[in-house]
Each structure stands twice: as structure tokens, then as C-alpha cells.
Design a protein around this nucleic acid. Structure first.
Lengths: 127, 127
DNA sequence: ATTGTAATTCGCCAAGTGGCAAATGTCAAA
DNA sequence: TTTGACATTTGCCACTTGGCGAATTACAAT
């Protein structure tokens, strides 16, 4: 097993639950996660998977990404998200190119840079 | 087992990996996740835990939250993250695509959409 | 104290994850 | 064709997760 993160998310969850005056069973009912499992998570005997985290976030009053961050799965702030004004990198992506590409489905956009990668590797092997 | 999300992230990961010309072993080396496991993930035989997702995000050119969203662990609340856009022409440029393209000279960027235009006209004449 | 009831913890185990090593596939060079 | 060097897939299995039901605990109200 490689995974070795063993952050004590349990303490955070317990504190949050208690401060909301919720019982394990209530959280269980709202989240669909068994109370016994929740209990073990709280006292650090189990380390919840992403699915479980996702389900218990709202019942505990967390946003999903908030809880994921607390759990150590996400860095405090992800740079790309929340960025909005000079959307596309700004500095070097030609705005016209951005506009044209943005009209294509994402699959197509990705295919396009896939083609670019192919061409570059061909060019490289030639030179 | 309650969790029943079984979106095949594998297809996305594979497409991304191939478009970047990376082998499973290279991703394995960069991420610390075994190549065999990565292979099984790609072909939908395994469903990676959050830890694994976190480790392979960067090597694949994704932001962490981006991959988590694609995996269905986070709701796509950020407008930048690609998800079901209502019909085509979502006017959304995939952040990864933007990042890659921004590294190219503007001439190259424009050449790329020129090629795209050619391909589209070919496709149109075929159908 | 005793009983009743709800909350928590424990024992058990089916199902799933992920690493390692061996097997297999791929493909270019000799 | 054969060899060699990689890349991918498979077999195996240690280990973890998470649910269920049975204890056990907590705590009111008799």
C-alpha cells in the first residue's frame, strides 16, 4: 500500500458534527453512510474514500471541495479554478484562437492539441 | 458497498495520456502509482481512490480539482471545468488545452486552428 | 436502582484496491 | 527471423473499506 496520508480528519468531522448537534445516526440518515462507519472515521480507525467524503460533506455543512481540502486531497486553492477575468492564461494565448477553439466541443479542443503534439514529435524526429 | 459511481474515467485518462505521448510507465514513474494499476484504471477494471487521483493529476496535465470533477467527486461548479455543456458551442475553452496552446508561439496557435478549419471542411464534404 | 430508548462501538466479512512479478504483446534493429 | 528493449496485461494476494447486526454504553424517567 502506497497511500500513507493519515490526516486526522476524524477530529475535524467530530468537532463539526458536535457543533451542529447532530448524531452519527442523523448524519448516517442524511448521507447514506452507516453510522458505524462514521464512528470509525471519527475516531481514526477508517479513512474515508472520496465517495464517502462526498456524501458526508453537505450533511456536515461543508462544501465538497472544502472537505476534500481538509482531507488533504486538494491543495488549498487550485489556481485554474476561480480564475475568471483574463480567462485563458492571458499572456500568451491569442484571443482569436481562444475564441475559435472555445466554440468547439472540449473533445475537439483536446483532439486539436493532440494533433499538435503529433506534428511536433514528427518535426522533432525530422530534425 | 454503497458507492455505485462507475463512470469510466479510464477513457478520459487514456485519451489524455495518449495525447501527451506518455506511457503508462512514465506516468507510473512520475506519479508513484504502479503501471499495472494505471492500466487497469484505464480499461475500467479498477476505480482509483482519491489518493491515486491526486497523484496522477499533475503527470497527466490536469489540475487536481479538474480531475476530481471529471471523476465525479466534485460538482462542476466552476464554469471553467468542462462538463456537459448545453449542446455544442459551449464557448468554453478547456483549461488544459489553453495551457498547452499558450506555450506555443502565436503563429503555431493560428496554424493549429487553420488545420482545424481544414479538417472540418473535409468532414463536412464527406458527410 | 431499574427500565427503556437512543447512540455508539465491536465483530465479522464481502467487496474492492493496488503492488509485485511473471507473462504477453509490440516493434525496430541486426 | 531472431533478438532485444520496452510497454502492457495478468495472476496473485496483502490489506483496507464499509455495511450489517449484535453488543455495549449513555442517560432520562420512573
Amino acid at each position: 500500500m502506497v497511500s500513507n496520508y493519515r490526516g486526522h480528519l476524524g477530529g475535524i468531522i467530530k468537532q463539526q458534527r458536535v457543533s451542529l448537534y447532530l448524531t452519527l445516526q442523523e448524519i448516517a440518515a442524511k448521507s447514506g453512510v452507516s453510522a458505524s462507519h462514521l464512528g470509525r472515521i471519527e475516531r481514526g480507525e477508517r479513512f474515508p474514500s472520496a465517495h464517502i467524503l462526498q456524501r458526508i460533506a453537505k450533511p456536515l455543512g461543508f462544501e465538497e471541495d472544502e472537505l476534500f481540502t481538509l482531507a488533504g486531497y486538494l491543495s488549498p486553492q487550485s489556481p485554474m479554478v476561480a480564475e475568471k477575468s483574463p480567462a485563458y492564461g492571458g499572456d500568451r494565448l491569442d484571443p482569436y484562437v481562444a475564441r475559435v477553439l472555445a466554440q468547439e466541443p472540449v473533445d475537439t479542443q483536446r483532439a486539436v492539441i493532440g494533433i499538435l503534439a503529433i506534428l511536433k514529435s514528427i518535426a522533432k524526429s525530422i530534425s
